[in-house]
Amino acid sequence: MAFSNEQLERYSRHIILKEIGVKGQKRLSEGRVLIIGAGGLGAPAALYLAAAGIGVIGIADADAVDLSNLQRQVIHSTPDIGRLKVESAREKMEAINPEITVKAEPVFADSDNILDLISGYDFVIDGTDSFPAKFLINDACVIAKKPFSHAGIIRFRGQLMTCVPQEGPCYRCVFPAPPPPDAVPTCRQAGVIGAMGGVIGSLQAMEAVKFLTGAGQLLTGSMLTYDALSMEFRKIRIKARDGCEVCGKNPSITKPAGGAAPVCEGIAL
């Protein structure tokens, strides 16, 4: 595939980079990334990946835009309230970059659809809010050997890790099982500073771009934590656990389980 003059101009700041170049931009154009959750994390990730010219971007979420989303979910606007988030997101992404294909999936990830959802993508971004969803995505990606980016945000803090199955630890190596419902505060009860999604979701997009182009080192084997109040980033080393329930030597989890219904309501997990 050859780039048109217009494409060369659109992607010029990428192509100039030694680590990306023409080859890297081609890989981005041929790349396929799935974003699960079109919220605080998914919004900036979707915008940057669309702008970067990722060939196919899937975005999965069954929710509609709510007024309380707009403080941080920058892909949605006030007139979008009530619309499906994935439709609102697709419109913005296509407006930024008409050259890409956006696949809107108006579903919540669950144990029945997750393997179908992630198949056909090179990289998955977990932009979900609930722990069952995060464990579901982790387990499915490990089982399907699909690289993905985990992230979480709350109050003034965020965390991020990249999992490349069989090459490093997974989310379950860090947290063996989800916490019981309401045992740990969620965004709705505890609040979150709007720009936190921008910081962490953008880092997820960064990992997707690095994965597709091969630039630099991925955030595997470490959890990056960010505290906005002290303005500290810390990279904490993580080792794979031999006894990990899904990526360990004798996994007890061999197929994705559990639902991923909305949890920030404080309702059952």
Binding site: L41, D63, N69, K134, G152, I153, Q159, F175, C187, M223
Partner: peptide
């Protein structure tokens, strides 16, 4: 010693 916390957040 490092502490790692559950963090949800994001979608909703």
């Amino acid at each position: 010693v490092e502490f790692l916390y559950f963090m949800g957040g994001g979608r909703r």
